[in-house]
Design a protein around this nucleic acid. Structure first.
Length: 800
RNA sequence: GCGGGCGUGGCGAAAUUGGCAGACGCGUAAGAUUUAGGAUCUUAUGUUUAUACGUGCAGGUUCAAGUCCUGUCGCCCGUACCA
């Protein structure tokens, strides 16, 4: 058969669509399987081949599952709210709705051309009113349950995007979207109390099957630490300074305290402080520093001693000085620390610089040179002296603190509450009304969706307020509670909102009564296998796990975890080995590849190019190997004969079916394809194959190159669609030949290989090995000290 | 610093519990075919003269190490003054 992909591919795409071949059934007696890929953000640039690789993995799994008789839900949609579209609108004046629709159209056509087996009847678009209605509904439910709060805080602000960012979106002190430097700004911010779920998000990881590195990243992100809160009395005040520490056993070694420059105690006891001028100067200096400067210029310690205010070490009774320094953060713990310079590197550096006492409480190091952070015997520590086990000394100290009422055990998380608002137009409006009498009042559920008003000027205000603030008709409203004049909240939700629950909407995308029908959720949830990029493993996944757990708590979903299994694919790099980006001009457009090579070659190549989880550079000439492979398969029909094949080829088929079946489950697509290539080589060597063998190969290859395989299936008179034909099975007993090649070593060095019957007995194998024409001469005059035989693998003769 | 991962031909990479290192593909070379080019097919292809040597480097365990152990160098990803 001539491999005419330009005719074949549109033909089968049309037939699949007409037959509804990949529609998931809501009511089915078949077992269900829900495969999920991360839905794309429809950017103006269109898709690149990285998207294709990201979807091809579970595409193969989904197709295999269908052939195995599962009712498969493999949906796609668009995460379409977001800044790039809005920035484009500002630049061009074209409404984001229009831009979004255009981009979605482009993405859809690209995806269709690749022949992905998505259920196109379930597409969701987060920017559609019937979708964001339910995003707002979830928000209001959280508001109702006290998980939404507002606070004035120093926030990460991007001066270029004019928008407040969460900690997650401003890592390394740079805006996640435009890469410009973040500044700290005091703003009123909406928060979601994700920290209330920190422990459950951590524990939930035990119930799911995530790749170990993915799990670890989430654990680190949540960042749970166990320790103690300790109160240090302030001399001459009724109040104590509260700190958090993981090493309360070193309490006797505390020689000073450090508090964050923003710590409220500084204002409260301002009249007692002698050197307010120095203090204010330092605080101002810190406020000006960006988060970036504060962490990068870190290693050099700066600070100011607060004169007139001292604390008392609650276990030793010694009076100790208090400093302010920006190495202590207001956002972690209590914003104050007890400093143990002898056993903490940062405290040590600070103490050296300011000439503060360093008191050893753990033996083992040389504290005249550096801080000792290892374990050892406790000294200078009263009742702890002599203890050598860290656990014991911590337990003893904790017991003491609790007994005396000085402190208590506690935990801390690195994870912070989720800053949940953006001063932007293209997002879900936050459905809250500010009433001068009633305060914050939720928009009634029956008024959802709270629609985005039509506007034409998308510029944010100079003060960084949302473009919505300029729309009088939107802002002015009546309070839903008292009916008086009120103002609408004008901030919108961050982009992460819509993607936090989209997998639920796929289950029932057109429901108008609830976010998804409970019965359908019960059938489809949880997602059996979720694949996506490593960059979404912390933010997106933790956010959506949090939303899901909340929905579980209010009875809206039937399971505690949304994703039963999670894997991640590696990037496709440009041909130059660099990350693909528009600015580097190394982006490969899937449309170009489909034009020149066809969708099946593209699909096969992105999976063949290397380990699925690793990054690999695009290499066009390497893709030609996949093209040749498919062309040779297309020609195979010529070799089909009822009496074709050979016993050896039959074994090769069983081996290959097994290998491909198992490799797909482990995302080892590269070796699965290699195995089929090897099989093809063997068929060509034999020169013929049976019709049944042909059918097996076509079905085996179908998830990878479905268009070609449908065509071959039809040519061979197969029944129905190849895509829905039964997955080939293998017979374990037929995966092995009757004879095996066994390596013969002398002193561990390969000297010959011998053909032995399968499962040849040890004695016989050794005897046959010794008798081999190449081995026997080498044993002349030598003594055999040891004979090792591993069945079907190796014989090793140790001689002297 | 901490957490995770990786280091194998000219290139992308394979290699169950330790058991023939380099499967499969690219590239390269020679030949066939072709008016020519391209495409296709056949053969060869880790280094080396047989012997020997080869999985970042140095040791170790073992009959046997890419795989296990100790030390060391380098790279990538994530995170970062987390008390």
């Amino acid at each position: 058969m001539k491999y005419d992909f330009r005719t074949i591919e549109p033909k089968w795409q049309e037939r699949w669509e007409r037959a509804g071949a990949f529609r998931a059934e809501d009511h089915s007696s078949k077992p269900k399987y829900y495969t999920l890929v991360e839905f794309p953000y429809p950017s103006g640039a269109g898709m690149h081949v990285g998207h294709i690789k990201a979807y091809s993995g579970l595409e193969v799994v989904s197709r295999k599952r269908r052939m195995q008789g599962y009712n498969v839900l493999f949906p796609i949609g668009f995460d379409a709210f977001g800044l790039p579209t809005e920035n484009y609108a500002i630049k061009t004046g074209i409404h984001p709705r229009e831009v979004t629709d255009r981009n979605i159209k482009k993405f859809t056509s690209q995806l269709r051309r690749v022949g992905f087996s998505f259920d196109w009847s379930r597409v969701v678009d987060t920017t559609q009113e019937d979708y964001y209605r339910w995003t707002q509904w979830i928000f209001l439910k959280m508001f109702e349950k006290g998980l939404v709060f507002r606070d004035t805080a120093l926030v990460n602000y991007c001066p270029s995007c004019k928008v407040v960012l969460s900690n997650e979106d401003s890592q390394g002190g740079h805006c996640d979207i435009c890469k410009s430097e973040i500044v700290q700004k005091s703003k009123t911010v909406w928060y979601l109390r994700i920290t209330a779920y920190a422990d459950r998000l951590l524990q939930g990881l035990d119930e799911v099957d995530y790749l170990p590195n993915i799990r670890q990243q989430q654990v680190n992100w949540i960042g749970k630490s166990t320790g103690a809160y300790v109160n240090f009395p302030l001399r001459g005040c009724d109040e104590s300074l509260r700190i958090y520490t993981t090493r309360c056993d070193t309490l006797f070694g505390v020689t000073f305290m450090v508090i964050a420059p923003e710590h409220p105690i500084l204002d409260k006891y301002r009249d007692r402080i002698v050197n307010t001028a120095d203090m204010d100067a330092y605080r101002e200096e810190c406020a000006k520093k960006t988060e970036f400067e504060r962490t990068q210029l870190a290693k050099q310690k700066t600070g100011v001693r607060i004169e007139g205010l001292t604390a008392v070490n609650p276990v030793s009774g010694k009076e100790i000085p208090i400093y302010i320094s920006d190495y202590v953060m207001m956002g972690y713990g209590t914003g104050a620390i007890m400093a143990v310079p002898a056993h903490d590197e940062r405290d040590y550096a600070f103490a050296k610089k300011f000439g503060i006492d360093i008191l050893e409480v753990i033996k083992g190091g040389d504290i005249s040179k550096e801080a000792y952070t290892g374990d050892g015997e406790m000294v200078n520590s009263g009742f702890l002296n002599g203890l050598t086990n860290k656990k014991d000394s911590i337990a003893r100290m904790l017991a003491y603190l609790e007994e005396k009422g000085i402190g208590e055990a506690g935990v801390q998380y690195k994870m912070k509450d989720w800053a949940f608002n953006r001063q932007r137009y293209w997002g879900e409006p936050i459905p809250i009304v500010h009433c001068p009498h009633c305060g914050m009042v939720p928009v009634p559920y029956e008024e959802l969706p709270l629609r985005l008003p039509q506007i034409s000027n998308f510029e944010p205000g100079e003060g960084g307020e949302s473009p919505l603030a300029k729309i009088e008709s939107f802002v002015h409203c009546k309070c839903p509670r008292c009916g008086g004049d009120a103002r609408r909240e004008t901030d919108t939700m961050p982009q992460w909102a819509g993607s936090s629950w989209y997998y639920l909407r796929y289950v029932d995308p057109h429901n108008t009564a609830c976010l998804a029908d409970p019965e359908k959720l019960k059938y489809w949830m949880p997602v059996d296998w979720y694949n996506g990029g490593m960059e979404h493993v912390t933010r997106h996944m933790i956010y959506s796990r949090f939303w899901h757990k909340f929905l579980y708590d209010i009875g809206a979903v039937p399971c505690a975890e949304p994703y039963a299994k999670r894997t991640a694919q590696g990037l496709i790099l440009g041909p130059d080995g660099e990350k693909m980006s528009k600015s580097k001009g190394n982006v490969v457009d899937p449309n170009d590849v489909v034009d020149e090579y066809g969708a099946d070659v593209l699909r096969t190549y992105v999976l063949f190019m290397g380990d699925y989880a690793s990054a690999a550079p695009w290499n066009e000439s390497s893709m030609k190997g996949c093209k040749r492979f498919l062309e040779r398969v297309a020609d195979l029909w010529e070799l089909v004969r009822p009496d074709g094949g050979s016993p050896k080829l039959e074994t090769a088929f069983h081996k290959t079916v097994k290998k491909v079946s198992l490799d797909i489950e482990e995302l080892k697509f590269n070796t699965a394809i290699a195995a089929m290539m090897t099989l093809l080589n063997e068929i060509c060597e034999v020169g013929s194959l049976t019709p049944e063998q042909f059918s097996v190969l076509v079905r085996l290859l179908c998830p990878f190159a479905p268009h070609l395989c449908e065509e071959l299936w039809e040519t061979a008179g197969g029944e129905g669609l190849c895509s829905l034909a039964p997955w080939p099975e293998w017979d374990e007993s037929k995966t092995v030949d009757s004879t095996v090649e066994v390596a013969v070593q002398i002193n561990g060095k390969l000297r010959a290989t011998v053909e032995l019957p399968l499962n040849c007995a040890r004695e016989e194998a050794i005897a046959l090995a010794k008798a081999d024409a190449r081995i026997a001469p080498q044993l002349q005059g030598k003594t055999i000290v040891k004979e090792i035989s591993v069945p079907n693998k190796i014989v090793n003769l140790v001689v002297r």
